[in-house]
Write a protein that binds this DNA or RNA. Structure first.
Lengths: 236, 236
DNA sequence: CGATCGATGATTGCATACAGTATTCTGCAT
DNA sequence: ATGCAGAATACTGTATGCAATCATCGATCG
């Protein structure tokens, strides 16, 4: 049948991308890169004009941003960029450690050689970014690597939950990305090897250490600069 | 100052409850109790009329239901009640076990005598419901108990994440609530004792067993009635 | 008789308009 | 000068209207 040639098999064909999705992406980006600061009041009309859409898609995006933990939604007052407390950060890191440890274990059980090759690719990208000293790129590469391990766990629920936590962690610990870079990426390499060997116990243990190190390092940094830079504390 | 008498000190005073919240609650209720069946197409206009509001709050609620995993949102086609696959259920149970095990551990470290008393209250409620044979009430009591343990973990992120998973699990395993009731509530009692004793290791281990038992039982039930009742499999 | 194409109805996505509420500013009394 | 009262303002919450898109059904052609 040469009548249906062009369509190969790549999933549900391109649906018209809903505007709310674009708005959602735009706003998360603005929050992550700091254009919208914690505690800042997000006025729907302003955002609407800035992004060139009406208030409706803005509101729908804000709903999603709320459940994802990016903004707080106070009735009759509107949306405010979420201000994380140090306590919340430590809790987030704690939960992240739990979930990632599990995903590393499952990844070691399911990964194929092709998957492992992809992991090494991401590892190289991270090391490159580290050498270049680009904190932004380091954090992103880190998220990509961890995210891929998540996928390899073959657990859709995990893969759906972890980014919710991880993207926020990513945002919080931007400032510490560079200093801990070297150690972190060495640990990554060990984890990948464990996954490649199909050794669940080892992968789990290594990831446990890795996340613990990251958490500890983060807490030290916080303690050192308590409240001064990077992280605002509490909201009124 | 007799001018401000009624307001005691219970947090932010009563804000006008947004309509979208009521809609959200109403729809989750309708999904859980089966009035809205998996795969069913949710037409905004119908829901709006049925609940006596306009389409706007409906849409906002649907956004939240989407991110919470209750409905699937297909662009230009609307909202459909999510159809869980057996695979997804097992993954959900797996993640729930992970999170609850952790929360039990932390609860044992933080619980006060007052907290424990509250746990025993909930336990009694569950046993009562069990005796009455009311599956609906059993499931609810179960969720309440687990939810309170979550709170005792003093980890806001956990407390926020677990219900996301747990409420869905609750929905899925309604059918098995009664048969496993007796064992489940015996295990609950042991867990509460461990928490009361402030024994994190024991609480963790007991919760691990408890969730594993539940998961196993669930999988058996599924295998027994494969696809026949209770759970629809896959969507087209 | 089956399949393809086109028309119709239904439904979503987006924009706009209106009403209710919180905040802020101004003026006044103390 | 300071504290309070009242009005004006700004923003959110909700409702409605319109255009674009998708699914369904019927007619036409092979």
């Amino acid at each position: 049948m040469p009548d249906t040639p062009a369509v190969t098999a790549r999933g549900p064909i391109a649906r018209p991308a809903p505007l709310r999705q674009a708005v959602y992406d735009a706003l998360t980006e603005l929050i992550i890169n700091g254009s919208l600061k914690p505690g800042q009041h997000l006025v729907e009309a302003e955002l609407a004009e800035e992004l060139g859409v009406s208030r409706q898609p803005i509101r729908e995006a804000l709903q999603r941003l709320h459940t994802a933990g990016w903004v707080d939604l106070r009735p009759s007052q509107g949306a405010f960029v979420h201000s994380p407390t140090t306590e919340e950060c430590s809790q987030l890191l704690s939960v992240r450690a739990l979930l990632e440890t599990r995903s590393a274990r499952d990844a070691a059980r399911h990964a194929t050689p092709l998957d492992v090759a992809r992991l090494w690719e991401l590892q190289r990208a991270g090391v490159t970014a580290l050498a270049a000293g680009d904190a932004r790129a380091i954090v992103e590469a880190n998220a990509d690597l961890h995210g891929h391990i998540t996928l390899l766990s073959r657990n859709a629920v995990l893969a759906e939950l972890i980014p919710q936590v991880d993207r926020r962690v990513r945002w919080y610990y931007m400032p510490i990305a560079r200093p801990r870079g070297q150690d972190a990426w060495n640990e990554h390499a060990l984890i990948i090897e464990a996954i490649a060997d199909g050794d669940p116990d080892l992968a789990e243990e290594l990831m446990r250490r890795h996340t613990r190190n990251t958490t500890d390092f983060y807490c030290q940094q916080i303690a050192a600069v308590t409240g001064s830079a990077g992280l605002p504390v509490d909201l009124p």
